[in-house]
Simulated scan of single mutants.
Amino acid sequence: MKCRIFCVVVLLAFFTVSEVHIAGMSLRGLGVEPRCRCSGTERRRIGKLIESIELFPPNPHCKDTEIIATLKSTGQEICLDITAPWVQKIVEKIMANKAP
């Protein structure tokens, strides 16, 4: 009896700690993040260091629009502050290029 209780506790702990899965697939595998990607943002001008930028609109897991820049030299990803004027200009350019 003690073994059964112990096994149930271990299984519950495992499911609590592991990623959320749907039909055997991780939400990350489906391209869905279970939370916001950015915990902090960069406000300084780093435009010359950026190789690429990805814009992530709000979704059920994160209420914020997130902008993630990949640096040329290191490939490091940095979250940009969407309220910074230079970042807003970049977003405007991205949106203008996507307009039909």
Rank of each mutant, 00 (worst) to 15 (best):
C79K: 02
P100E: 07
V91D: 02
A13F: 13
D64A: 14
R45T: 09
I5E: 12
L27A: 00
L71I: 13
R43L: 06
G29P: 00
G29A: 07
V10D: 08
I90D: 07
P85R: 12
S26F: 07
S52W: 06
E66V: 04
F56G: 02
I68W: 05
G24A: 10
I68T: 07
F56L: 11
C7S: 14
P57C: 01
P34C: 02
P58G: 00
C38Q: 03
T83K: 14
S18H: 11
V87F: 05
K63S: 14
S52N: 15
R43G: 10
N97C: 13
V87Y: 04
H21M: 13
L27P: 00
T65H: 03
E19T: 06
C3M: 11
A23W: 02
R28T: 04
V9D: 02
V91Y: 07
H21R: 15
I53P: 01
I78G: 05
S73A: 15
P34I: 02
E19P: 06
R37V: 01
C62T: 00
W86P: 02
I50C: 09
A99V: 08
S18W: 10
K89H: 10
P58L: 01
D64Y: 13
F14W: 13
K93Y: 10
G40E: 10
K98S: 14
E19K: 04
V91I: 15
E66Q: 10
R4E: 13
I53M: 11
A84M: 08
I46D: 07
K89G: 08
T74I: 06
R37M: 03
W86E: 04
Q88G: 08
I78D: 03
L27R: 00
K63V: 10
S26Y: 05
V20F: 11
G75V: 05
L55W: 05
A13E: 09
S26K: 08
G24W: 03
I67H: 01
T70Y: 07
T83N: 15
V32H: 00
R44K: 13
I53Y: 03
C36S: 01
P85F: 10
I78F: 08
I46T: 09
I5C: 10
M25W: 11
K98C: 12
G47E: 13
I53R: 04
C38F: 04
K63C: 04
I67A: 08
H21V: 10
G75T: 04
R44G: 09
E33H: 11
G47C: 09
L30C: 03
I46N: 07
P57D: 05
H21Q: 14
Q76K: 15
I82N: 06
M25H: 14
E66F: 02
F14K: 07
K72N: 12
R4I: 14
I67C: 00
C38G: 04
A69V: 09
F56V: 08
S73I: 12
Q76S: 12
C79R: 01
T83S: 15
M25L: 14
G29C: 04
C36T: 01
A96S: 14
G29N: 09
L71D: 05
P100C: 04
T41S: 13
I78M: 10
